[in-house]
Amino acid sequence: MIRDLFSKKKKYATIPSEQAKQEVPEGLMTKCPQCKSIMYIKELRKNQMVCDQCGYHHRVTSSERIAMTLDEGSFEEFDAEMISKDPLQFPEYADKSAKDREKTGLNEAVITGKGTIEGMGVVIGVMDPRFRMGSMGSVVGEKMSRAIQRAVDERKPFIMFAASGGARMQEGVFSLMQMAKTSTALNRLHEEGLLFISVMTHPTTGGVSASFASLGDINLAEPQALIGFAGRRIIEQTIRQKLPDDFQTAEFLLKHGQLDQVVARKEMKKTLQNIIDIHRPAHTGIKED
Rank of each mutant, 00 (worst) to 15 (best):
Y12A: 11
Q261S: 13
S63K: 13
K266N: 09
V122S: 09
C32T: 08
M133C: 03
G141F: 02
K11I: 14
G121P: 02
K96P: 00
A180T: 13
G141M: 06
L226Y: 08
T205F: 08
A180V: 15
Q53T: 14
A80E: 11
F75R: 04
F6C: 14
Q149S: 11
L272F: 02
Q34S: 11
E118Y: 14
F212V: 06
G55F: 03
M1Y: 11
Y56L: 07
A213E: 00
S62F: 04
A147Y: 02
V110L: 09
V140E: 13
F90E: 13
G193R: 10
D260M: 03
E154N: 10
V50N: 01
V126I: 09
T69L: 12
S211L: 04
A185L: 09
G166C: 04
N107W: 01
R45S: 07
T182L: 02
F131N: 02
G207A: 03
C51Q: 07
G193Y: 12
V152G: 00
L5Q: 07
K103P: 08
D153N: 14
V263L: 05
G228P: 00
A98Q: 14
H58K: 12
V122R: 00
I227T: 10
G207K: 01
E77Y: 00
K242A: 15
S74P: 03
I159S: 06
G257N: 09
E288W: 06
K31P: 02
A250F: 00
P203D: 09
F212D: 02
I38Q: 12
K96Q: 13
Q224C: 10
G166S: 03
S7R: 15
